[in-house]
Design a protein around this nucleic acid. Structure first.
Lengths: 345, 345
DNA sequence: GGAGGCCTCCAAAGCGCTTTGGATGGTTGC
DNA sequence: GCAACCATCCAAAGCGCTTTGGAGGCCTCC
């Protein structure tokens, strides 16, 4: 069943049927009624491809996922998509996913534009100074960045968590408990979020006049072994940390594995705070959560980014929008006062 | 730059240009040369939407991701998509992602078909008797299942790992090491893969005449706390297991956390074998991997499923294709002989 | 030398929708 | 009573590609 057939059945022109269905004003209320009823009855659904060709709008959002040299795919991404996807389907948008080698990422955006495949894109994991933002502005493709880079924030649309403040608060929390040797297991610091987290950590130390020790800071892919290896390493040194801040639960689990092997109890012998993206397969809940954590829902961010982008696409005014989310600091079982003997370690 | 403009520049008809670019035989070799050169020079890329409308083919693969009641999104999915996505981009297919509530999954497939949005779909995580296979056959949409359900295997296309054999081998391996109390931490057993794993485990026990103890079998979402909680529970009972088989590294990490807290060394006091989907963010490598594991690459499965589906779509003959992959059994540090005192526990 | 065949190329008709630019007929205002 | 004006509807021209059904020219073969 297509438009023409439906029109014939109704003894109307395709024009009128199209307008009736798309809510244009120049059609009689009764006619519109008849048309919508018939459409429902015969199960008419407009061919999206034809619609796209005619309107030039694709009703599709693009997500370009680079596969980096180390072949690591960001586990956070699936959760983000779960959130964004919910919103897409309620507003009947599609999303297309381009998984490409990092080196071909720019090309991927260009073809997306050249082939008019998408009305807009979401940019994931921005780097310190991210060329993709320039590229997209140049291409004139609407976009929302999940995160920020370093340019003036008013120049583009983004949604970010306050990474600096979250890690400042986490560090402060540990300082309040008497810890002075606090390690940071961070993500790769060319990613802007990681750089900001580092900043927050460092700011907190500086404010209290606690010396910054580079030997306590690690930055790498946020996988479990990062937590395990760096913890084993630090705890084998003299003057080890009494507290560890990690950038993801995965890393925190690695820390726990290392401390477990050494017979240390987290929350007593050593304190751990992790950032928690609230991933569905890494729960940190219960009456008293396993980890004390700064928490911000990535799925929620996905939902909101999708909404922002669709709003931008659909509105005439394309002025940038921003949202800065604060993370919760929730107390769990993994933190406690600094052990007396180690207090000024 | 569109076809017509390019044709004008070349002083050729759109017909000929189109044919030259799409490799039809009825065009002179020199002409074809000229056309492709010009296309490259002017950066001409055919409008995919127009192409789709004209051909009726969408060059797009669909992935419908149900969000289940527990709001858990399958972490394996991202990795699968990384593999599939690689292949899509090299063969210049797109993939669209529909994230929908579980209850609306059938509708999602129907609209995909009604709107001719995809040429085929990949079905993820099939259940014991999966209605989606019936639905897709009824809708006449080409599809490949990642996994199998319980119907005759010749009736549809699938790629699966030999879950039964993998878990049979894992169980055998532990039995060979003298273990007799072997626990299984499985996924939800309405998923076919989990049911088959259970089967393999049970078959191995039966063959050796080792009694099957339901108290040693858990089935739930494969998250870290499943490993932790069930291990704590089992080890608190009298007659605890001396070995544990888990369905994912995430669960195995939970086991390790529990045993770590109890001061048990894996590979000595307790043995652990896990299935390893070879997820990029859960590495289990190194000279001697942390876990002894049955391993099969989900990313590889993604690649292959995508290829199979595209082949099916592009070939005239649509007879079902199947592939059954065997998992490797790689030995790591988490297994060892059953401690003497517990040998016939 | 004319029929038949092959190699190249092209005009034009779709694919299914939107949208521009009227047409039609009934109302309104003076 | 006539012009101006709505409210409704429609014909037809795209959107950018593919594909059908030739057409024209040259070669071959008897």
């Amino acid at each position: 069943m297509n438009l023409k057939e439906l029109a014939k059945l109704l003894e109307l022109s395709p024009t009128t049927v199209s307008r009736a269905l798309n809510g244009y004003p120049e059609v009689n209320a009764n006619t519109r009624e008849r048309v919508t009823a018939a459409a429902r009855k015969y199960g008419y659904a407009p061919n999206q491809v034809a619609k796209r060709l005619a309107t030039g709008r694709s009703h599709t959002i693009g997500h370009v996922i680079p596969i980096s040299g180390h072949q690591m795919i960001n586990p956070i991404f699936a959760e983000f998509m779960a959130g964004a996807g919910e919103v897409y389907s309620t507003r009947s948008y599609d999303s297309i996913l381009s998984v490409v080698p990092e080196t071909e990422e720019a090309d991927a955006y260009r073809t997306l534009v050249a082939n008019r495949k998408v009305d807009g894109v979401i940019v994931h994991g921005p780097h310190i100074n991210d060329y993709r933002i320039d590229l997209l502005q140049e291409l004139g493709l609407p976009f929302v960045v999940h995160g920020r880079d370093t340019r003036p924030e008013s120049e583009y649309s983004w949604l970010d968590m306050n990474n600096r403040r979250a890690f400042l608060r986490a560090t402060d929390f540990l300082l309040d408990l008497g810890h002075r040797r606090i390690a940071l297991l961070n993500g790769i610091e060319t990613h802007n979020f990681a750089a900001r987290r580092h900043q927050g950590y460092q700011d907190a130390l500086t404010r209290r006049g606690v010396p910054y020790d580079p030997a306590l800071v690690f930055a790498a892919d946020m996988v479990e072994p990062l937590g395990y290896d760096s913890t084993r390493k630090m705890l084998a040194d003299d003057n080890p940390p009494t507290a560890i801040i990690t950038s993801s639960i995965m890393v925190a689990l690695g820390v726990l594995r290392a401390t477990g092997e050494l017979g240390l109890h987290s929350g007593r012998d050593i304190s751990i705070i992790t950032h928690d993206d609230d991933l569905s397969y890494l729960p940190n809940g219960g009456a008293v959560p396993l980890f004390t954590a700064t928490r911000s829902s990535v799925r929620g961010a996905g939902r909101r980014c999708a909404e922002m982008l669709m709003d931008i696409i659909e509105s005439a005014d394309r002025s940038p929008q921003h949202e800065l989310w604060e993370a919760d600091l929730t107390v769990g079982r993994s933190t406690g006062p600094c052990p007396e003997g180690l207090k000024y370690g």
